[in-house]
Amino acid sequence: MENLLLLHGALGAASTLAPLASALGDQYRVHVLDFTGHGGKALPQEPFSIQLFVQDTLLLLEEKGISCTHIFGYSMGGYAALSLAQQHPKCVKSIFTLATKFAWSPETAAIETKLLNPEKIEEKVPAFATTLATRHHPQDWKQVVHKTAAMMLQLGEEPVLTAEVLQQIQVPVQIAVGDLDNMVSVEETLWAYRQLPNARLQVLPATRHPLETVAVDKLAQEIKQFIHQPVVSN
């Protein structure tokens, strides 16, 4: 069996990928991890950053003795996976991203972080606040939110995946986005696809941003199909 690593999104944890891991476990050795500060892992003194999450991924691969792996990255996890491939291409066989945001600017970061206010989350979506508290216990979920917001503001000032960086990524990549995603546009996804030398673009019908709203079996099938079919270079 080949290795397949699943990377979670912002405010997520390895637990959010459990249904997908189960659906893929018949064909791959599936691995998941909690990024630093997520899923109960200790909150770092340093800020959250894509580079921190790249280092988390490298550490996991080293601990498990994995020299090279396929990667599925949801949202922020896809951003980290692509950054890893640019810096350490020998570690990555292929990448499938879903709902990864590429259009980072001060304006878009300001829009995204408006939603990342713990007090407003508690007030307006208390069920989500409870979910976050459980997901990141025993850490303070509010600090996870604050650190995530700060990371997004930094990305707005200095995006990691510039056109120049994406153009350096030679591994096969499938960039997927839902047609009903209200956080990631088809246009920004198309832009990223056009920068990547060895990529495929997929727009999933009737699909919104939250991972829990995506049909797991359908997504698993798309991942399997991608891994087993070579990408035609752009």
Rank of each mutant, 00 (worst) to 15 (best):
G178S: 01
T131Q: 14
R194K: 11
S75A: 10
T162P: 15
E212R: 01
L20Q: 08
N182E: 14
A199M: 07
G12S: 06
L84C: 08
Q170W: 00
Y74I: 06
K142G: 02
A99K: 01
T36W: 14
G65N: 07
W104P: 11
N234S: 13
Q45I: 12
L84M: 08
G37T: 10
L20G: 11
Y28C: 03
I50F: 05
T148C: 09
A110C: 11
Q174Y: 03
L166G: 14
M183P: 02
L166M: 14
S83N: 12
E46F: 01
A18V: 13
H31Y: 15
G37H: 02
A133E: 14
L7A: 03
H137D: 14
Y79I: 11
E158T: 15
V203Y: 02
L5K: 08
L17P: 14
L7K: 05
A199P: 07
D26N: 09
E122P: 07
S105H: 07
K93I: 10
L82H: 04
L201V: 06
Q86C: 12
G9I: 00
M1T: 13
L115M: 08
F96G: 00
L82S: 08
L52K: 04
W141M: 02
F128H: 10
E123I: 11
A150D: 15
T36A: 12
G40V: 04
A21F: 07
L211H: 00
K64R: 15
V92I: 10
T207M: 03
P210N: 02
V203F: 04
L4P: 06
P106W: 00
V165C: 12
L211R: 00
R200H: 14
E187M: 03
E62Q: 08
T100V: 10
T130M: 15
K147N: 14
G12Y: 00
Q55T: 12
Q139E: 11
T213W: 05
V177H: 03
E112V: 13
I50A: 09
V145L: 07
N198R: 03
Q87F: 07
F128M: 05
A81L: 08
V216N: 00
T97M: 10
V125Q: 13
H137L: 14
T113Q: 06
C91V: 12
Q143W: 09
T207W: 03
L204R: 13
G40T: 10
D179V: 02
V177M: 01
L24P: 04
A13M: 11
L190S: 12
M76S: 12
M183Y: 15
L98Q: 03
D34C: 04
L58N: 04
I223N: 08
P159M: 04
P172T: 04
G37P: 09
V165W: 01
T189S: 10
K41E: 15
E222C: 06
L17C: 11
P172K: 00
K218C: 09
M151N: 13
R194D: 15
W191Y: 11
V144E: 05
Q51A: 12
G156C: 06
Q225D: 13
